[in-house]
Structures are given as C-alpha cells and as structure tokens.
C-alpha cells in the first residue's frame, strides 16, 4: 500500500462526505425550521440527476444540465411543498413519514414511466475529464477534485447565507421560535417554501454531480438519503455545522473502511476470507459508528435545539 493510494482514498472520502453534506444540509434545515422529516429528499436528488442527464444529452452541455438540475429540483421541491408538505407541518411524524414515503413511490414510478428502467448516462464535461497530478505522486481525477471544490464553496455559501443575510436571520429565527417570527409579520409560509426549495436544490445539485461518476437511475437517491440520516443522527438534528462534520466523518470512515479493512484482515486470515469478512464489516462500519455516538451523545455531537 503506497502513500499515493492512501491520499487518493482520503480525497475520495472527502468528496463522498461533501456530497452527503449537500443532502444532509437540506434535510437538517427542513427539520430544524419546519420540524418535518422528509423521506422524499432522495427523490429530489434523483430529479436533479435526471434533469441534468436529460438536458445535458439534449443540449450537449454539462453546465447547462447542472443549472437545470438545480432549477428542476428546486422547482419540484417548491411544488411538493405547496401541494403536500405544507399540510404536514402540524401532523405527527408518522403522517410525515407516510406521506413522504408516498411521494417517493410517486416520484420513482413517475420517473420510470417517463425515462424507462434503463440508467441514463451522464458524461463528465471535457474541461474536467482526465487526471491531475498532485504532490506525493498522486494522480487524481480533476472532476472529483472539482466536486470537492464545489462542495466546499456550497458549505461556505450556506454558512454566509445563514449567518450574514436577512434570509438567514429569518431561518434562524424560525428554528428557535416559529410562532414569534410569524407574530413579527414575517410571511412564514413563503419562508418555508424557500427553505424547502433551497434544500431541494442542494439535493438536486448533489444528484447531478454524483450522476456523472455513477449512473443516473431510478432509486439512486434512497441509499444516499439513508446515509444522510446517519449523518444527521451523528451530527445532531438542525445543526448545519453538525451535518458538515458528520458528513465528512461518515464519508471518510466509509471509504477508508472499505479500503483498509480487507487488507487489515489479510494480516491474520487467508486472503479470500479476509476480503469477504473485511467488506461485510466495512459495509456496517458507519452504522456501528452511529451506534457508538448514540451511546455517548443520544442527541448527536452538535445538537442545536434538542
């Protein structure tokens, strides 16, 4: 095992973590401000990926596709907020889970209806294809590096939005006291729609970015959604900082576990057995991490408002 390989895997972990962050940030915002658990967040991820693939194939430009993914996911988010989600804020979590589960069925089957069951392909833009040379002899994909940069920029932008802008003040006020902010004359319904669309847009962006390195297919959002839940449980519900920390932790632990555990077990087992034990354990690693965090801090590492 060389240092170059290790650095490459570390970068992969960071890239994976930042994409998880784009998902988890929206989920945790929606939960923090509106008190809603949204299972359909993965569907918005899928909508973003499909919009990007369809528009990029039609126009031939990945960048227009990327813009389309943001717009389509944010629009889809705004529409479902106005039509369905709005009716769920005062309901219990069971109703929220079921209604958003129903939305998943509608989105997944609707997408399959329109695009068929076969995965779509989305090519990495020419500008970003190929590897780049980094220090220590590392050859790393420019595209993945670009994803890391975009992820960092979004995290920074989100931080500035929440702490420095008027909208951010309203969002934070909505998190701490919903009734009071409405009493102060803020149009809370529009604020909710904006927050939901913002989260949806971030999920769509993540879907489009990841879609270019994996395949774009129905159901691609749910595994990521469940990982985003793990992130939120680790980071603490409602905390953007917690979701950034949790995402990077989950991304790194998962990637490094898959990379290191099989070689670790090879030290004292025969190779084929080591690979199967190592990969099975690696697939469970982040959940074990979640369980450990729960034992120490049941409300997450950075619980904002318990």
């Amino acid at each position: 095992m060389t240092a170059a390989l290790l650095i490459e895997q570390l970068l992969n972990g960071v890239q994976f973590g930042l994409m998880l962050f784009l998902m988890a940030a929206g989920l945790t915002l929606v939960f923090g401000v509106m008190g809603l658990i949204n299972l359909a967040h993965g569907s918005l991820y899928m909508v973003g990926a499909f919009a990007c693939a369809a528009v990029a194939n039609f126009t031939g430009s990945f960048w227009i596709g990327l813009g389309a993914s943001l717009a389509a996911a944010a629009a889809a988010g705004a529409i479902i907020e106005i039509v369905v989600i709005r009716r769920l804020y005062n309901r219990d979590h069971l109703d929220q889970v079921l209604a958003t589960f129903a939305l998943i069925l509608i989105f997944s089957e609707g997408t399959r209806w329109v695009f068929g069951s076969f995965p779509l392909f989305l090519d990495v833009p020419e500008l970003l294809s190929g590897p780049v040379s980094l220090p220590f002899g590392v050859q790393y994909s420019i595209y993945r590096l670009a994803i890391i940069v975009i992820g960092c920029l979004v995290a920074l932008g989100l931080y500035l939005l929440i702490t420095k802008t008027r909208l951010g003040i309203r969002i934070r006020a909505g998190e701490s006291d919903r009734a009071m902010i409405a009493a102060l004359g803020i149009d809370i319904r529009t604020l909710y729609t904006i927050v939901f669309a913002l989260g949806a847009g971030l999920a769509g962006l993540a879907g489009a970015l990841v879609g270019a390195i994996q395949s774009v297919q129905v159901g691609m959002g749910e595994p990521v959604l469940i990982l985003a839940f793990v992130v939120i449980v680790i980071g603490g519900i409602g905390s953007i900082k917690g979701s950034l920390f949790g995402s990077l932790l989950v991304g790194l632990v998962d990637t490094m576990g898959r990379f290191l555990l099989p070689s670790f077990f090879k030290l004292f087992m025969d190779p084929s057995q080591a690979t199967s034990v190592g990969s099975a354990l690696a697939s469970m690693l982040i959940y074990i991490l979640m369980a450990l965090v729960l034992v120490v801090k049941p409300k997450g590492l950075f619980s904002a408002n318990a």
Partner: peptide
C-alpha cells in the same frame, strides 16, 4: 421521535 425513525431505518439498512 424523528431520531427513532431514522435510527431504526439505519440499522435495518446495516
């Protein structure tokens, strides 16, 4: 509450 929903889901996924 929500934590319970997400955690049971996560363990099942594990």
């Amino acid at each position: 509450g929500v934590y319970f929903i997400m955690i049971t889901l996560a363990f099942a996924q594990m």
